[in-house]
Measured scan of single mutants.
Amino acid sequence: MEVRTIKVFTTVDNINLHTQVVDMSMTYGQQFGPTYLDGADVTKIKPHNSHEGKTFYVLPNDDTLRVEAFEYYHTTDPSFLGRYMSALNHTKKWKYPQVNGLTSIKWADNNCYLATALLTLQQIELKFNPPALQDAYYRARAGEAANFCALILAYCNKTVGELGDVRETMSYLFQHANLDSCKRVLNVVCKTCGQQQTTLKGVEAVMYMGTLSYEQFKKGVQIPCTCGKQATKYLVQQESPFVMMSAPPAQYELKHGTFTCASEYTGNYQCGHYKHITSKETLYCIDGALLTKSSEYKGPITDVFYKENSYTTTIK
Rank of each mutant, 00 (worst) to 15 (best):
E2C: 14
E2S: 14
V3A: 13
V3I: 14
R4W: 11
I6D: 03
V8D: 01
V8R: 03
F9W: 05
F9N: 15
F9T: 09
T10G: 05
V12C: 07
D13S: 01
D13A: 03
I15L: 15
H18R: 12
V21W: 14
V21A: 09
V21M: 13
V21Q: 10
V22D: 03
V22Y: 00
V22K: 00
V22I: 14
D23I: 13
M24P: 11
M24C: 02
S25I: 15
M26A: 10
T27I: 11
Q31W: 12
Q31Y: 07
T35N: 00
Y36V: 01
L37P: 00
L37V: 07
L37G: 05
D38H: 10
G39C: 07
A40V: 12
A40K: 14
A40I: 15
V42R: 02
V42D: 00
K44L: 05
I45T: 13
I45Y: 10
P47Q: 01
P47E: 02
H48V: 12
N49V: 14
S50H: 15
H51K: 01
K54P: 00
K54M: 10
T55K: 08
T55R: 11
T55C: 08
F56Y: 06
F56V: 08
V58D: 00
V58E: 00
V58S: 01
L59S: 13
P60C: 07
N61Y: 15
N61F: 15
D62R: 07
D62Q: 14
D63V: 09
T64K: 15
T64L: 13
L65F: 12
L65K: 09
R66T: 11
R66Q: 06
V67C: 11
V67P: 06
A69D: 07
E71M: 10
E71T: 15
Y73L: 01
Y73W: 00
Y73N: 05
Y73C: 00
T75Y: 00
T75S: 00
T75E: 14
T76P: 08
D77V: 02
P78H: 08
P78S: 09
S79R: 14
S79D: 11
F80M: 00
L81M: 12
G82H: 07
G82C: 09
Y84D: 00
Y84N: 00
M85L: 14
S86I: 11
A87H: 04
L88R: 01
L88V: 03
N89V: 14
N89Q: 09
H90G: 12
H90M: 10
H90D: 08
K93P: 02
K95P: 00
N100V: 08
G101Q: 07
G101S: 03
S104T: 15
S104R: 00
I105T: 05
K106Y: 06
W107R: 15
A108R: 15
N110G: 00
T116Y: 03
A117N: 03
L118I: 14
L119S: 02
Q122T: 02
Q122C: 03
Q123I: 04
L126F: 11
K127L: 07
K127A: 07
F128I: 01
F128C: 03
N129W: 09
P130T: 14
P130N: 11
P130Q: 03
P131A: 05
Q134P: 02
D135T: 12
A136Q: 08
Y137N: 03
Y138I: 08
Y138A: 09
R139Q: 11
R139M: 07
A140V: 14
A140P: 01
R141C: 15
G143K: 10
G143E: 02
G143F: 05
A145L: 03
A146S: 13
N147K: 12
F148L: 09
C149E: 00
C149D: 05
A150I: 00
A150Y: 02
I152T: 11
I152R: 01
I152F: 05
I152N: 03
L153G: 02
Y155F: 04
Y155M: 00
N157T: 07
N157Y: 02
N157F: 08
K158R: 15
T159Y: 14
T159R: 15
T159H: 15
T159I: 08
E162W: 01
D165T: 15
D165H: 07
D165V: 12
V166Y: 11
E168P: 03
E168S: 14
T169Y: 01
T169D: 00
S171K: 06
S171G: 15
Y172A: 14
Y172F: 13
L173F: 00
L173G: 01
L173A: 03
F174V: 04
Q175F: 04
A177C: 15
N178P: 03
L179S: 00
L179K: 03
D180T: 07
D180F: 06
S181G: 15
K183N: 08
R184S: 11
N187V: 11
N187T: 10
V188I: 15
V189H: 08
C193Q: 09
C193T: 03
Q195R: 09
Q196S: 09
T199I: 08
K201S: 09
K201G: 06
K201T: 13
K201N: 10
G202M: 04
A205S: 09
A205I: 01
V206F: 05
M207H: 09
M207D: 05
Y208W: 11
M209Q: 10
G210V: 03
T211L: 08
L212K: 12
S213Q: 04
Y214A: 04
Y214R: 05
E215M: 06
Q216P: 02
Q216S: 11
Q216K: 11
F217K: 05
K218M: 07
K218T: 07
K218F: 03
K219V: 06
K219P: 01
G220A: 03
V221T: 10
I223V: 04
I223L: 10
C227D: 05
G228W: 01
Q230R: 09
Q230G: 08
A231M: 07
A231H: 04
K233V: 14
Y234F: 09
Y234S: 09
Y234R: 09
L235P: 07
L235F: 04
L235E: 04
V236T: 04
Q238A: 04
E239M: 08
E239S: 10
E239Y: 12
S240M: 01
F242E: 07
M244I: 02
M244Q: 04
M244K: 02
M245V: 04
S246C: 08
A247G: 06
A247Y: 07
P248F: 12
P249D: 06
P249T: 08
A250I: 15
A250E: 12
Q251W: 04
Y252F: 13
Y252W: 10
Y252A: 11
L254R: 02
H256M: 08
G257Q: 06
G257Y: 04
T258P: 03
T258M: 14
T258W: 00
F259Y: 03
T260F: 06
C261R: 02
C261T: 03
S263N: 15
S263K: 04
E264W: 03
E264L: 12
Y265I: 06
T266C: 12
G267T: 12
Q270K: 13
C271D: 15
C271L: 07
C271F: 13
G272K: 07
G272I: 05
H273A: 09
H273G: 05
Y274M: 02
K275P: 05
K275I: 03
I277K: 05
S279I: 00
K280A: 13
E281Q: 06
Y284D: 07
Y284C: 11
I286R: 07
D287L: 00
G288M: 01
G288I: 00
A289D: 13
L291M: 04
T292N: 12
K293V: 11
K293I: 10
S295Y: 14
E296K: 14
E296N: 13
E296V: 14
Y297A: 07
K298G: 08
P300Q: 15
P300F: 14
P300I: 14
I301E: 04
T302K: 04
D303A: 12
D303P: 00
V304D: 05
V304A: 06
F305C: 06
F305N: 04
K307V: 13
E308H: 07
Y311S: 09
T314C: 15
I315G: 13
K316D: 12
K316H: 10
